[in-house]
Nucleic acid binder design. Structure first.
Length: 583
DNA sequence: GCCGTTTTCGGCCCGACTGTTTTCAGTCG
């Protein structure tokens, strides 16, 4: 079993223990261990073989034994027994808003409810309202929650969340009672999938701001509305929370509500170690219970809060408790890449295959955007569904791009189109074009578009063979996932990264918000192996050039700097880098 | 289940809101 599989099982054990009513700190130990493994840079197989599990913080004897069993035997009787002791439907009950482990346990113990449909029936017949701790209001809230769940997704792509949040942010900022306003939470941390949108505002009149927010035209449902906090559902089904604080409290609240939860826990612990108390209202001297203003250490910005805790500023994208505290304490937080440092994209499509736009339109738009170059990497012949190019059409496209570039040169324009292909990786790792043809192209991206159901060793081998081809510059969308739609195919990403390191092959960070592939959690491993990143739009229409910005956000989450990303290079240096593998 | 120079037990982040309660438990973030 690999890291992800073990992490998934530990996370499920955490939830199952919660449902059993176990000690919450025990359940947290499993949840924390799962989280650690999700982003752990080394392969568990290696760690177990070298008997180093105990060196990982939070991995005590019990967890070490269980993980070792999972990695070496592929199964864990403790988990199987735990799972068998509870009906599988209980897990989905937890997804109903307002239902936590305690209430689910009561529903199961008293009414033998073990699925969403059973819960719906019991609510409709009024049985749920009779239970201790439940009443009419809870019952109808559960019914609303089940109906809502049928109608809307609970998770959303960051691109949709940004489109939803930006206009609301503008409206809040224009309200006369709002002093400062920002988004926080997973949106500010630039997670690829967003559960809800968190807004934070400072004001002397929170009631007015809350009233304004809950009355916005996009609000279709109000979950909760108090003096300083409101929770609503917006059109499209995204939940949005607003918290209103005083202006001096704003930086503390911004840090607090940006999270992540795991990051905040460490922040609080650091405060306690220094005889301080940190919460969303401030950083206070002494451990007294009250938020006494006389004991406040005023901080005008988030950076000052970090400094008070002997840390350098930690950019929101890194606040996942994934090593940022050690780095910040030792002044090792890198200067993360900015999207404006990107000079172009090396994986894009045109109307020659399944893109929408002509070469001329692409040239005009990308010059307008300020790019130095833009590679046209249309699909290869086997991608019939995407109108992939036969070799003769690709030859014609090479000629046409050359003539466009001559015209650009004549006009004194420095922008250039680059020729290229997104060549299919076929079975056994053969490529869809001959090396003779690939050798004529500026940029070769190799990607898998078929044979998704092959075994992990087969797919891993295909990708490694593609990396070994001297004409392949980079591997495209490595895992093949489509966020919220399609799981990645099975592959050993660490082994492929190792092969890229050995062959000098780059890995794409596909910046389409449906992909963000390679996942940000794997970039620190890739970086540690010296593998370079290319942030590509995989543009199929002009507006997809906006993905550069989103992709840079994901690269920042992966701790990448300008030097780690190939397409920050100006054209002459890029051409040298492209020639390097072939030489 | 984890952790530890106040160490093998007794802690483990903390506050807002809701609903069901006659003072608080559960959920959420």
């Amino acid at each position: 079993m690999d890291n992800d599989q073990v992490a998934a099982i530990l996370a499920e054990i955490g939830v199952l223990l919660e449902l059993k009513g176990e000690n919450p700190f025990k359940t947290r130990a499993y949840t924390n261990a799962a989280r650690t493994l999700e982003t752990f840079p080394e392969r568990l197989e290696t760690i177990v073989a070298e008997n180093r599990l105990g060196e990982i913080k939070g991995f005590g004897q019990a967890l070490q034994d269980k993980i070792t069993q999972l990695v070496t035997t592929g199964s864990l009787p403790y988990y199987d027994e735990l799972k068998a002791s509870l009906p599988p439907g209980l897990l989905e009950l937890l997804e109903v808003p307002g239902l936590g482990p305690k209430k689910v346990k009561i529903l199961h113990d008293k009414l033998n409810i073990a699925s969403l449909s059973q819960l719906e029936t019991a609510c409709q017949s009024g049985q749920v309202a009779e239970l201790p701790g439940f009443a009419a209001k809870t019952q109808s809230k559960i019914l609303d929650g089940i109906a809502f769940r049928k109608k809307y997704a609970s998770h959303h792509l960051i691109s949709l969340a940004l489109r939803t949040a930006d206009p609301i942010l503008d409206q809040l900022r224009s309200h006369p009672d709002v002093i400062r306003c920002a988004t926080a939470g997973s949106l500010r941390r630039h997670k690829e999938i967003i559960g809800d949108i968190d807004f934070l505002a400072s004001s002397r009149n929170p009631t007015a701001v809350i009233a304004f927010f809950t009355a916005l035209p996009g609000v279709i449902l109000i979950h909760a509305s108090g003096d300083t906090k409101a929770s609503v559902v917006l059109e499209g089904g995204i939940q949005a929370d607003l918290r209103v604080v005083t202006d001096p409290e704003f930086p503390f609240a911004l840090a607090y509500f940006t999270g992540s939860k795991e990051h905040n826990i460490v922040m609080r612990q650091r405060a306690i170690e220094r005889g301080l108390r940190l919460n969303e209202y401030g950083l206070f001297r002494s451990n007294s219970e009250t938020n006494d203003p006389a004991l406040l250490l005023p901080c005008a910005t988030e950076e000052e809060i970090y400094n008070q805790l002997d840390l350098d500023f930690i950019p929101p994208e890194l606040r996942e408790n994934q090593g940022e505290f050690d780095a910040a304490a030792e002044h090792r937080i890198p200067r993360l890449i900015e999207w404006t440092e990107l000079r172009g994209s090396l994986h894009n499509h045109s109307q020659w295959s399944d893109g929408r736009d002509s070469l001329n339109d692409i040239i005009a738009a990308m010059i307008d955007l300020g790019c130095d170059y833009w590679a046209i990497t249309d699909h290869s012949k086997s991608s019939v569904q995407a109108n992939g190019l036969q070799p003769d059409r690709l030859q014609r496209q090479i000629t046409e791009i050359a003539s466009r570039n001559r015209r650009l040169a004549d006009e004194g324009e420095s922008f250039r189109l680059l020729t290229g292909t997104e060549v299919d990786i076929l079975n056994e790792g053969r490529l869809d074009f001959d090396n003779d043809l690939l050798a004529q192209l500026d940029v070769v991206v190799a990607s898998i578009h078929q044979g998704f159901t092959q075994s992990e060793p087969e797919i891993t081998r295909r990708l490694i063979r593609a990396a070994e081809n001297p004409f392949v510059h980079m591997l495209g969308h490595l895992s093949g996932r489509l966020l919220l739609e399609r799981h990645p195919y099975k592959l050993d990403a660490h082994a492929v990264i190792d092969a890229c390191a050995e062959t000098g092959t780059w890995i794409e960070l596909n910046a389409s918000p449906y992909r963000f592939d390679l996942d940000w959690r794997l970039w620190s491993y890739a970086k540690s192996r010296g593998v370079k990143c290319v942030i590509n739009c995989d543009a199929h229409r002009l507006e997809h050039s906006g993905f550069l910005r989103l992709g840079a956000g994901i690269a920042r989450k992966g701790w990448l700097t300008k030097a780690d990303v190939i397409n920050t290079l100006p054209l002459p240096q890029l051409k040298k880098a492209l020639a390097q593998k072939r030489a």
